[in-house]
Design a protein around this nucleic acid. Structure first.
Lengths: 351, 351
DNA sequence: ATTGTTTGTGTTAACGTTTTCATCGTCTCA
DNA sequence: TGAGACGATGAAAACGTTAACACAAACAAT
């Protein structure tokens, strides 16, 4: 295993100085045809690849961005990460990805690790309730874009969706279209921004209809979700509908309902925040608020690259609020005619 | 925005030489209590963070590993990536993640990018049918572990699951337990290792029972999956069961079946390779071969770190074959008594 | 008192690039 | 024929760190 070839090796073999090689590889101006040919041949012969570490050290630019997500087992986060990765690849950047496990402490540690690695920019789905750590002066000189949840500091840009409005839309639908009056709400957590905003939207919809919001059913894990749900279902004033505030919550609650034989929407209607692949394949199909995960990720990445381009000045951030889409299906009690129409006649059988 | 503090700034402020700072930060041996205190104070005051680029350049070690996955929108891959990220974080390594879109050319380009970034090791879910590109001499000096699909070169380690045996198990179940004789098989692609191996297992099971394997139903995308499936279902000798060879295939086929009103398992029984969160919440619950995605990812990462530790010698690779688990549920035609028992009496209602 | 060991620290050079400046022809124009 | 311009190239320094060595002071053993 011989040492990796350096630019000097290439230069020596091609009979030129290292600078000529560097020039050819970068601006490709001011190098004679003849020398270029020899250099290319030397590069191929040696299998030379420039060392990005050295390049970054010298040039003060790593061509790398970081992304911190809570975890990848929520398809929503995975989608965001995928989109960021794709945009970065197209721009010739590498992505350092790390997971925070929704732990502010870990998030902070990992963000620092990103700084040590001199990322040119950072996309983070903040786990800290208020993002205080990321607003510390040590992050001052780095471009940061918050995704899915905003950061309080106006210096950072953020991409979020219409959480309140979306939640309100879904819950209002339950009230006005289906006459529900006792509607429960389920969330993974009470402090995280997205849940707060969506629960707010829920409460808003309830109050607007003169109804009392119910306490949040906490769903940190499947079994606790089931326990907490059943406690409510067994109690007095059983809700007739439930609003779940993200993908995991929906899964946990849906499983608990299926396991207990609860009929949806007859016994309990369900609307969910965050659409996912199989939502329309469940029985019943889930009525959801769809958030544009891919678009959120790519928007965040593009925004970051824009900012990085702006003379490296970390200036005032922008706040983008992306629209969500209400997708009524069956779990809310609707029976969209569209569904029936979609079934090809040739294969139509029992329902 | 002032320049980032360097080790020299710290040294100056603490009234020592840069080496003393470096020593303290690395081995923390041979530095007087007094100096250490001043250095720590200087570090805190300046907000100093060592530059990993410089460190990597000098030390010939980047504390970084790379991972190349086809994409993140298959939860299986996302899980693998998540596990790798977690292990790496625990070992103090950063992860550079990139997606290949299942394109061998892109995979090659990205692998080269990893080399330029001097990753200490690389985990790849190979998209190239035979992985030839990754076996080129240019990758000789890098530790590579293949995940989910093996690489032909014996130099690399690989982690795969019992693809053939798992597929055989599932298909044999359809034959012996439920008497199916015309069983179809669906795959995303015909060339990728995992699909070849699973289709092989299917064919093996069929032949063992004296049955003729049917041509593969290709499912590169949802609409093509539906079209190809319906072509088969409309033809003569309609299959009575189908084996889907990965998560995406299962989704596509399941959707096509639901959309066309086909009853599972009455009209067409279904068994799938790769379990996923909602598989047990679909109607009917899916009978699957479960692969340990998390374990695969963490095993790959641990294996990589082991190899990296071995004196940096790239030696003969090992091949690990992880077991899969047959999880019979309802879509194959079974009616596991376990399911009924799991339903709490209190909430038991219609089925 | 001499030698050796330990302890704390500084100096130099190197990692592989690229930026900046200098050099040396060759060409053009008066 | 010389002044200037241009084109191709090289040399030196720098990016921030650490390995390798060197050194001085303090202390123990002979």
């Amino acid at each position: 295993m011989t040492r990796k070839p350096t630019i000097k090796d290439v230069a020596r073999l091609a009979g030129v100085g290292p600078m000529t090689v560097s020039r050819l590889l970068n601006q490709s101006a001011g190098v004679s045809e003849e020398a270029a040919a020899r250099i290319y041949s030397a590069i191929a012969q040696l299998g030379y690849r420039p060392n990005e570490m050295a390049r970054a050290l010298r040039g003060q630019k790593s061509s790398t961005i970081g992304i911190i997500v809570p975890y990848l087992y929520d398809p929503f986060f995975a989608m965001c990460a995928h989109a960021v990765s794709t945009v970065a690849r197209e721009k010739g950047y590498s992505v350092i990805l790390t997971t925070s496990d929704e732990d502010p402490e870990l998030e902070y540690v990992e963000a620092q690790s990103m700084l040590r690695r001199h990322v040119d920019g950072l996309i983070v789905i903040p786990s800290s309730q208020d993002g205080t750590r990321l607003c510390l002066p040590e992050f001052q000189s780095t471009h940061i874009v918050a995704l899915d949840r905003p950061l309080p500091d106006r210096r950072f840009s953020s991409i979020v969706v219409e959480n309140r409005a979306g939640a309100e839309r879904a819950v209002t639908h339950l009230i006005t279209a289906h006459g529900h009056r006792r509607i429960a709400v389920a969330a993974l957590d009470e402090r995280l921004y997205t849940f707060r905003a969506r629960v707010d939207g829920y409460a808003q919809a309830m109050r607007q209809a003169g109804l009392e919001p119910l306490p949040v059913i906490l769903c940190p894990a499947p079994d606790q979700a089931a326990a907490n749900l059943h406690r409510v279902l067994r109690g007095p004033n059983t809700p007739t509908a439930i609003f779940t505030t993200n993908g995991l919550t929906t899964r946990f609650i849906f499983k608990a309902l299926v396991d207990s034989g609860t009929r949806i929407p007859e016994d309990l209607a369900l609307v969910a925040f965050d659409d996912f692949d199989l939502a329309e394949l469940l029985e019943p199909q889930l009525s959801v608020i769809r958030q544009p995960a891919m678009k959120m990720g790519s928007t965040a990445a593009n925004l970051l690259f824009d900012r990085m381009g702006d003379g490296a000045q970390v200036s005032q951030g922008v706040r983008l609020v992306l629209p969500v889409e209400w997708v009524p299906r069956r779990s809310c009690g609707c029976n969209p005619s569209a569904v029936a129409e979609l079934v090809p006649q040739s294969h139509r059988q029992a329902v």
